[in-house]
Design a protein around this nucleic acid. Structure first.
Lengths: 248, 248
DNA sequence: CGTGATTACGTACGTTGTACGTGCCAGGTT
DNA sequence: AACCTGGCACGTACAACGTACGTAATCACG
């Protein structure tokens, strides 16, 4: 019952480097990321990644034990992008805001990430990110569980906001691909509104029913409106956290 | 260029009911939900659902045009469960809290939902839910865009919290399935901690390294701790929203 | 008792992850 | 120089997926 290399996470196992490997784990991860960004996460198949690298599909399994490990590599690469490079701001608020913004930006750049990477294994960069958020709260007087609660609260909001934003973007792009279906969906929505069952929704849309939530929900949802709304929400969440957990 | 039934959303198309259908859309959706709850969302394949209903896979396509439509039916069924049945509490805070709790509970009962249903089409019950959250803010004096921002903010937090909770549960169950890998992952994490690169994380875990975030991250993460943390976070978010948007 | 529409469903195609086995070829050892 | 050895590449094969297509079964109605 000794520790075999089979059980070890990918970061504890050495890369093929011995003989004459044609590839690198980093190279593979980068190609996978490019494919995901260009064609969506579903396009990241072993065959596709391999073909892009001019290689057979099974060759990749020399560098990675399963596809999940490839996904883990992608995840850790993204977490590296989230890391704040230099020193953190002194104030907990500034530090948390900075980290939240970086998280938001990375997830916005890779909209497939939140949905597809959440069962990925924790890697070193994820640990560094966790450490960094803890560091942001280091100088506050609150005790350890409270620290944990605060960063959880903020992270929950950030990820919820990103989730919604990427849903909206996703809807918008699938909508562009099939205008007829969108038109039909809008007509269905309008018919529902006309039943009188939805007075508040009707009031919100204010007669301009072509901006029904199905496709591009109201001006508040335009691309730059999204970021502004995120910042305002983040401010509110930080205020709430400060009050609830006694941060100064 | 007339409106053909091909473009219409599933809720605008009549069910097969004419001749002598063996199945119902609702029946199909319910079976799919049961399978998802019992074996996970990935187990919801057309073949599997059909087999459970003692039917050929292709038969389902008489009731549903694509698998996405099946998923849309599942989504709408869940939204029905989220709806508050009776009257909403008078205070916006009470109403929003109630809705948030129902959302949280439904998503916690069906942990696969958040990840798998987010590209699903908007159905009638989703509209009702949206209407209900607007109604919760009806009696406040704030203007329409502010209402929208508030409910977005709260919903973002709720979904972020649920997302994290189901990630934790998912990790816990995959961990149970492969204790050796967990052990190896913990050892890797401990080795990382010993590098001294993670002082705050080490302090958080306080020497009890067997509760490394990989599997069951600290007592704060136990099943009832999760709910308590959610409620506290929700309180903070509502406070923050009230302050930021001038709710009384 | 046909007849025509409706519902059921088998077959088949192109994908997916990956187990398995074979073959190549660079190093170190004789 | 010849030979082995083991790391690496990768073709084949399998089961499972969504679903297009075609056909068979079955009912309502004339």
């Amino acid at each position: 019952m000794s520790r075999t290399s089979d059980d070890q996470p990918i970061w504890a196992r050495p890369e093929p480097g011995g003989r004459r490997p044609r590839l690198t784990r980093e190279q593979i991860a980068r190609t996978a990321l490019e494919i995901a960004d260009r064609e969506g996460f579903d396009a990241v198949s072993m065959r596709h990644v391999a073909a892009t690298l001019n290689t057979g599909a099974m060759t990749l399994y020399n560098y990675v034990r399963t596809k999940d490990e490839l996904v883990a590599l992608m995840h850790d690469e993204l977490m590296a992008q989230v890391l704040v490079p230099g020193e953190l701001p002194d104030s907990w608020r500034g530090a948390l805001t900075l980290i939240a913004h970086r998280t938001h930006d990375v997830m916005a750049r890779h909209p497939w990430a939140l949905n597809s990477l959440q069962e990925a294994q924790f890697g070193p960069n994820a640990m560094r990110h966790f450490e960094q958020t803890l560091a942001a709260l280091a100088r506050t007087g609150i005790d350890t569980p409270a620290k944990f609660s605060v960063l959880t609260l903020v992270d929950d909001y950030v990820r919820g906001a990103v989730l919604r934003a990427s849903e909206i973007r996703k809807r918008k792009s699938t909508a562009d691909a099939d205008p007829a279906a969108v038109q039909a969906a809008i007509e269905f929505g309008m018919a529902q509104l006309r039943t009188g069952e939805f007075p508040h929704t009707a009031a919100l849309l204010g007669g301009d029913l072509s901006s029904f939530p199905e496709d591009a929900p109201s001006p508040a949802m335009a691309e730059d409106g999204l970021r502004e709304q995120f910042e305002r929400g983040l401010r509110a969440v930080l205020d709430g956290a400060a009050a609830e957990f006694g941060l100064t």
